[in-house]
Amino acid sequence: MPRENYQQRLEDLRAEVVSMGDLVLERYDAAVEAAETGDDDLAREVIEGDYEVNDRYLELEEECTELLALQQPVASDLRLVTASFKVITDLERVADLATNLAGYGGDEGGLHPAVDFREIGDEAGEMVADAVAAYEAGDPDACRAVAARDDDLDERCRQASEAVVRDLLEADRARVEANRSGESDPDSEELAGALDEVSRALLAVRDLERVGDHAVNIAARALYMIENDDELIY
């Protein structure tokens, strides 16, 4: 293959990875909106549209494989191709998490009063967007900045999970005390509903934390691509 065509394929690969990132973030934002508002139609659109992300992933996986097998890139070109393959893998997993998140919203929207789902979700999504932008621009400082934000996201997720469990325990204690005093009888449907709300909230928080982890993975691979530096990988 002429050198010009080879370089163009590398440039096209980077552009297509960024385009996949845009698609995934579009689906992710829709998933957060669906969970926050309880929009069943939007949730269904996110879930049923996941095939488009999967198709894009398979196309780019094939392109990476062909470049590795047929062109045998070395040095920075090799890092670009291998990093791109890792980045699309993380993006595909963010899309999978988006399908989970889309289905967590209750009938009237929201997950649990103790969780600021929108704020945490937006922060995790911004980390992914910034990591993809760092990959596109070849910006090592931006890569490190994304990784540095992960501890804060993890802490917010931890606090949210603890708040959900604490709220459940307090509500259960109140029900027990009310039952003992004869003020009310246990309501199995109400308890089941509360447990379902807690379960969905905890799963959602876990998945948001994982979105942040994938953002760090993308930033780590981008940094390796840019500077041959694996400090964020291990």
Results as ranks from 00 to 15, higher is better:
E11I: 08
L23R: 06
L153W: 04
T89P: 06
A35G: 12
P73W: 13
V165K: 05
A148I: 04
F117S: 09
G49Y: 06
S181A: 08
M1N: 15
L80N: 03
I233V: 11
R44N: 09
D116W: 03
E45Q: 11
E209F: 05
D167K: 05
M225L: 02
Y57L: 03
R27C: 05
C64L: 06
G21K: 00
L78K: 03
P73T: 01
D141N: 09
G121I: 02
A192R: 14
E33K: 11
A102P: 01
G138M: 02
D107Y: 03
L42C: 08
D29N: 14
L68W: 02
G106Q: 00
A142E: 09
L191C: 04
P113D: 13
A75W: 07
G109S: 04
V74M: 11
D50K: 13
D77A: 05
V211E: 08
E231D: 12
D185H: 09
A35M: 09
Q71D: 15
S199P: 09
E170K: 07
S184H: 15
E162A: 15
E183L: 12
V216W: 00
D213P: 00
R180F: 15
R210G: 12
L10V: 06
Q7F: 12
R144F: 01
D12S: 14
R14E: 13
S19H: 13
M20T: 01
V211D: 00
L111G: 01
L168Q: 14
N100H: 12
G105E: 06
S84Q: 04
S184Y: 14
R144S: 04
L58P: 03
D172G: 13
D154V: 12
V74H: 12
R156A: 08
A124M: 06
V128A: 02
R93L: 10
A145C: 08
G193T: 10
L25W: 10
L97R: 00
L169H: 15
